[in-house]
């Protein structure tokens, strides 16, 4: 499968993701009062069907917090958390998972993490971008990821995903972090990096 991006471009995007998720992990750490580790991020350009498969088993239940990116680059930030881990994070914030505020607590985690990532991205590239308010839902992983990718599918055949993993130390609790720029968004990103 042709990926249409060069190794150099993917390396640069990976480095962006690295700095973005580093900033996001610091924010999450401050919020939860725990150390947060980050994995080495991946930058993958995959055909849509494979991109969905790469995210994990399609029918697996997952809690997703989604934020849109608007401004000079359009795209979506998707935070994927196993439901048990979402419950654990609620408790770290002092909210019981079945409490009426649990969803907004998770939304707030998504907001802090997503916004710090997006701000880091804006700072590095000089792009004028900002996040939209978060939306939280628990459903089939495949349905959530495919619905996000559909927004980018209109003009291209390949989805670019920047994927990092945040791990809350001592709690065995992880957030998978996906940044999916719309097709035009990737071009803007690469041109800002001088790699278009």
């Amino acid at each position: 499968m042709s990926t249409q991006y060069t190794e150099l471009q993917l390396d640069a995007l990976r480095e962006l993701a690295n700095i973005g998720s580093g900033t996001a992990s610091t924010a999450l750490s401050a919020m939860l009062g725990r150390s947060v580790d980050i994995s080495v991020p991946k930058a993958q350009a995959l055909p849509f069907a494979e991109a969905v498969e790469a995210a994990g088993p399609a029918e697996q239940d997952i809690t997703a917090i989604v934020l849109g990116i608007i401004g000079e680059m359009q795209g979506t930030v998707l935070l994927l958390v196993p439901p048990a881990d979402a419950d654990a994070m609620c408790r770290m914030l002092g909210v019981e998972p079945d409490d009426e505020f649990a969803l907004s607590a998770l939304g707030e985690i998504g907001n802090i993490v997503g916004t710090s990532y997006i701000n880091a991205l804006a700072g590095m590239t000089g792009m004028d971008i900002e996040p939209t308010p978060p939306s939280t839902t628990t459903d089939m992983l495949g349905a959530l990821v495919a619905s996000v990718l559909a927004g980018a599918a209109a003009t291209g055949d390949v989805a670019l995903m920047l994927d990092s993993n945040l791990l809350v130390e001592g709690e065995d609790c992880s957030i998978s972090f996906l940044l999916v720029p719309d097709q035009g968004g990737v071009d803007v990103l690469l041109s800002r990096l001088g790699l278009s």
């Binding site: 997703a64 989604v66 849109g68 979506t76 939209t132 939306s135 839902t137 349905a143 619905s147």
Partner: peptide, 10 residues
């Protein structure tokens, strides 16, 4: 379906 309760084109 509409998976997310956000006002976006998707």
């Amino acid at each position: 379906a509409s998976m997310f309760a956000v006002a976006s084109s998707s």
